[in-house]
Design a protein around this nucleic acid. Structure first.
Ligand code: FES
Ligand code: FES
Lengths: 133, 133
DNA sequence: TAATAATCCTACTATTCCGATAGGAATAGA
DNA sequence: TCTATTCCTATCGGAATAGTAGGATTATTA
């Protein structure tokens, strides 16, 4: 429970690495090598980071990825949500507004409080901080 | 990511229900019915809650489960850990002290901070609060 | 224009985990 | 002895995860 998937850990390692290369592009293969991530697997992760606008890419020779914006303006929550975008139906924690047994469910506010606590932590941490940590 | 397993949600619902029955025992079947939990599945959950000392049990006719201690003295962290006791090897978040690439891993303190944030929230919430929520 | 190096795309596999069920053994009360 | 309960072990199907394979597209460069 509350464990980060390998995919999310990889995404964060790749982003922190990229954030330390201002304005420079790095290939997926290079990021994979320096962060010990399976190269082919990372390709799919970078794709997700791109569609959410966190990174930009250049195809062809000398291509690669670069930050789309200042790491100081990217929150860790944005990265996590870029990767774990899918919403799983696990009751209290997921369905914020509607739920089958909402009326008789005492723990509901507990779950919402937990979700809020996590979201707050993640949204207050910038990629810049983490990449320098 | 950060989603609570059904097992954990069931455990918490069962515990909050039990906490509202001071000194009384309830059978697993009864808890299952009033909380819409698969009966046989709940049996296994109650077993885990027992070995960690959160509930006591009585076998045989008129048996059942009862709180082992005052709900005000049980933290939600205790319940969560009773269920999710197994430690999965997912790097930064799990291995608190030893990790393969600890030296070069910038996100490490980020992960530890997140874990600490969650643990703090859970340990400061008592079962009593949640069962009344 | 041909070779090369990169992103991008689609599909597949293998394994693990999860939620749930089945069937019964041990135990205690009536 | 009957019944109601906890307790134990085994199994199953489905979903998600981590990772691989193979190539199509695109841009640079010689
Ligand atoms: S099960 Fe829906 S709010 Fe708790
Ligand atoms: S991978 Fe181990 S501390 Fe980050």
């Amino acid at each position: 429970m509350f464990s980060a998937s390998a995919r999310t850990q990889y995404a964060i390692r790749a982003m922190t690495n990229l954030a330390r290369r201002p304005n420079r592009t790095a290939t997926a293969a290079e990021l994979a090598r320096t962060e010990s991530i399976p190269a082919k697997y990372l390709e799919g992760i970078m794709a997700r980071l791109k569609v959410t606008g966190l990174v930009e890419s250049e195809r062809g020779k000398n291509g690669g990825y670069r930050m789309a914006t200042d790491p100081a303006n990217i929150s860790m929550l944005q990265i996590v949500e870029a990767i774990e975008g899918r919403i799983k139906p696990v009751g209290c924690l997921e369905h914020e507004y509607t739920c089958a047994i909402v009326d008789g469910c005492h723990p509901r506010s507990f779950w919402l409080g937990l979700k809020n606590t996590i979201d707050t932590y993640l949204s207050e941490k910038s990629l810049k901080e983490v990449s320098e940590g």
